[in-house]
Amino acid sequence: MIGRLRGIVIDKQAPEILLECNGVGYEVTLPMTSFYHLPALEQEAIIYTHFVVREDAQLLYGFANTTERKLFRLLIKVNGVGPKLGLAILSNMSASQFVHCVNLDDVATIVKIPGVGKKTAERLLIEMRDKLKDWGQEIATPVTDGIAIDTISTESSIVSVTNHKDDAINALISLGYKLNQADKAVKAVYTSDKTSEELIRDALKSML
């Protein structure tokens, strides 16, 4: 099991990064809530990972802190929720926001996430309620180790992305949104001074 990686961010193409650790490049997929807090290209990052082995692939999912990873692992244990849907959920809301939705039985917000129908949303709320009842203190002060939690790096986006709008649309599609949904959401929040990461963040907010 690969549980933690420390290395240099070589490439960022939301929601994936390439992290070089001692000469080996690891492709890691992150929820956008963690992706936003990555340092600039050529800077060091430490991410906590969840390793998935399938017959046709070996996949690494990365998180800014152990709290986000713990929630991801709880989510994918729910019937009908796989890693892709878990990634979509944590891309649309932080751990604290998800816990808040569970505490309020907020089905309406959960079903806005791509791939989450009403039955899945209700199942999530029911199954996660007991598992998250003691999470108030845990999510109050999430610990990060190598990813700045309060800053969004724009330098790397400017360097690696030539078309921020297309990059944002492609990222939303990879998270489960349909092309027309992604295109409409990005266009609604687009301004020429925004990076791709800012466009993705604002588009996701506008759809919840």
Rank of each mutant, 00 (worst) to 15 (best):
N22Q: 03
N22T: 03
G23A: 08
G23T: 02
G23K: 04
G23C: 05
G23W: 00
V24M: 05
V24W: 02
V24N: 01
V24A: 03
V24Q: 00
G25M: 09
G25R: 03
G25N: 07
G25Q: 04
Y26C: 04
Y26W: 06
Y26G: 07
Y26H: 12
E27F: 15
E27Q: 12
E27W: 06
E27I: 04
V28D: 12
V28A: 11
V28G: 11
V28K: 10
V28L: 08
V28M: 08
T29E: 12
T29V: 10
T29A: 00
T29C: 10
T29D: 07
L30C: 14
L30H: 12
L30T: 06
L30A: 13
L30V: 04
P31K: 00
M32S: 13
M32N: 13
M32D: 03
M32F: 15
T33H: 01
T33N: 11
S34M: 12
S34P: 13
F35L: 11
F35D: 04
Y36H: 12
Y36G: 04
H37R: 10
L38S: 14
L38Y: 15
L38T: 08
L38E: 14
L38A: 11
L38F: 10
P39D: 06
P39S: 03
P39M: 06
P39R: 10
A40V: 11
A40T: 15
L41A: 02
L41S: 06
L41V: 13
L41T: 15
L41N: 03
L41C: 07
E42K: 01
E42G: 02
E42H: 00
Q43F: 04
Q43D: 02
Q43K: 01
Q43I: 09
E44N: 05
E44F: 09
A45T: 07
A45W: 10
A45Y: 09
I46E: 01
I46L: 14
I46M: 08
I46Y: 14
I46K: 12
I47R: 01
I47K: 02
I47F: 05
Y48H: 13
Y48V: 06
Y48I: 07
Y48Q: 01
Y48L: 08
T49C: 06
T49P: 13
H50Q: 09
H50G: 07
H50L: 00
H50F: 13
F51C: 09
F51K: 06
V52K: 06
V52N: 15
V52R: 11
V52W: 07
V53M: 00
V53N: 09
V53I: 15
V53D: 14
